[in-house]
């Protein structure tokens, strides 16, 4: 953990945060009737887009693990950035109550890693796998034309359990 040290009035300090802060958003705000009041537009910067999308996912209650490693993967395979948004949307449509975890899987046997999106539900009924496949079908086609991978999966755990993610 980060330790706190005494500070003086003339020396403002800032302590490192382990979550994506709201500051990474880049909205443009304008007011007035019939006018644009918010726009989240992709920028020319890939890093800024990745920050914006990860922040958006956090707002949608997706738990992001290994943020730094995920950023590195997305920088290497930029096509996956946009697939990720579609994948989360598809999963939320099929499983509105699900808790989602986004992380990076490291294959222990070979030098390979790729992001995964893990779905957890309070109850897993007999249609669960069918729905998971239906959600995957909504974005998997885009992976065939894109370098990199995104795996949709589950571990069948209870999302409420302590330290679930």
């Amino acid at each position: 953990m980060i330790t706190t040290s005494a500070v003086t009035a003339s020396s403002p300090t800032w302590r490192a945060s382990f979550v994506f802060p709201f500051l990474l958003k880049e909205p443009w705000l304008e007011t007035g009737p019939g006018r644009l009041i918010f726009s989240a537009t992709p920028t020319g910067s890939l890093i800024a887009d990745i920050f914006r999308i990860l922040e958006q996912l956090k707002d949608e209650a997706v738990f992001v693990r290994d943020a730094q490693e995920l950023q590195e993967y997305l920088l290497r395979f930029p096509g996956i950035v946009d697939v990720l948004v579609d994948a989360v949307r598809a999963v939320k449509e099929h499983f509105p109550e699900a808790k989602l975890l986004l992380g990076v899987y490291r294959d222990p046997e070979i030098e390979d890693r790729y992001p995964f999106l893990c779905v957890r539900l309070k109850k897993y009924d007999e249609n669960f796998m069918e729905c998971l496949e239906a959600a995957e079908a909504e974005f998997i086609g885009r992976l065939t034309d894109t370098e990199g991978w995104l795996q949709l999966t589950t571990d069948f755990k209870d999302p409420e359990m302590e330290n679930a993610f």
Binding site: T31, G32, P33, G34, R35, L36, I37, F38, S39, A40, T41, P42, D49, P78, G79, V81, D82, V85, R142, D145, T146, E147
Partner: peptide, 14 residues
């Protein structure tokens, strides 16, 4: 490679 980007806009109308 190809990227399909999404742009979200919120407008205030009547």
């Amino acid at each position: 490679e190809q990227r399909l980007l999404q742009e979200v806009e919120l407008t205030q109308g009547p």
